[in-house]
Design a protein around this nucleic acid. Structure first.
Lengths: 188, 188
DNA sequence: TCCAATAGGAGACGGCATGTCTCTTACTCC
DNA sequence: GGAGTAAGAGACATGCCGTCTCCTATTGGA
């Protein structure tokens, strides 16, 4: 045949294209109106190819998110103070959230029930490390810090972003850290 | 015509029946799979009757919730201590949540963003009153309590219930109150 | 008391997305 | 170079949405 030979993508290459298409579709129409058909069309493939890899919308979208972003804490901040480190983590959460379609998280939350390990567990580990380093510097009395206190900053940011739908600015972050979190790290 | 005369319900009576049917449907299939057709069938009426009153699913369900429950704080607790009052409020939140289909809140939150008024604002007012009474008893230094601190208990419960999907037991409540909230009411 | 206006009950309809299936054809690996 | 695999394309049954239309029970006003 003369002219264009329709190259047929496979495996990783195809998968990458689909995940990119998914993300683009998300950005364009949001999560609520993202359809398998839309993604397939945009990726230039058929629905069956999607369903061969992911059982449903939620899983596809979760893959797309993971594909686009590595872990939010793959490089831990080390500013020299607990305050700086925690603010850094919170800023990352806010920044990442800002780059998502507004209904993405709540949509996934509704359909799949749980926030995946990525979103919560990883942050807990990061906080643990930050607090240990703080303890070595004498900033923190580790025995006074319960797990719930440790996740206070991230929990509150999450609450603010997802349940209150607030724009979280710098002053919100410092409020949480200075008025709430830091005082609890060194009880009287 | 001999025998059963098909009484035709109207106005308030019909509306009540629909709202009850909506709640039953919610309890049975959850929010995600609640359909207008299902509600209409259960109420023994047609879809048009629903659409005449509510523009869509969300509004119908919101009405059903309001129809079933009055405000969570229409009678403020007054146990004689801030600790008791706050625990009481938190227990109410947990109790009410337990009586809801698991996906109800997140579903509505996703689709309409409404409900924040009921679920957040009302509780803030209640907390304000509780704290003022606490201040009169000398339990609380009001000048140290920022709005964000005041809503800490309710925010954390909400986070636990809606984002972490945890079963919130008594020990969770006392942890939040004793380890986090009360210490912040009387800084050193 | 009767009649016109209103609203209920029932269901058809077009539209759209889901998830399954089938078919042909390009590619890959042995 | 040939068998097996998976891509591309689209038909299909299903389900729900929101709108429309029909007919009839009920009601409030003349």
């Amino acid at each position: 045949m003369i002219g264009i030979t329709a190259q047929r993508r496979r495996g990783t290459e195809l998968e990458g294209a689909i995940l990119r298409a998914t993300w683009d579709e998300l950005a364009e129409v949001g999560y609520a109106r993202l359809t398998m058909e839309g993604v397939a069309a945009r990726a230039g493939t058929g629905k069956q190819v999607l369903y061969r890899r992911w059982p449903n919308r939620v899983e596809l979208v979760l893959s797309a998110i993971r594909h686009r972003w590595s872990s939010i804490v793959d490089d831990l901040p080390d500013t020299g103070s607990v305050r700086g480190d925690v603010l850094d983590i919170m800023q990352r959460m806010v920044g990442r959230f800002r780059q998502m379609p507004p209904d993405l998280i709540s949509g996934i939350l509704t359909e799949s029930g749980e926030l995946r390990v990525n979103f919560i567990h990883v942050l807990e580990d990061a906080m643990a490390t930050i607090l240990e380093r703080g303890a070595e510097r004498g900033e923190v009395r580790l025995d006074a810090v319960t797990p719930r206190i440790a996740r206070l900053p991230t929990d509150l940011i999450r609450h603010e972003l997802l349940l209150r739908h607030r724009v979280v600015d710098e002053s919100t972050l410092t409020e949480i850290v200075d008025d709430i979190f830091l005082p609890l790290l060194r009880p009287a």
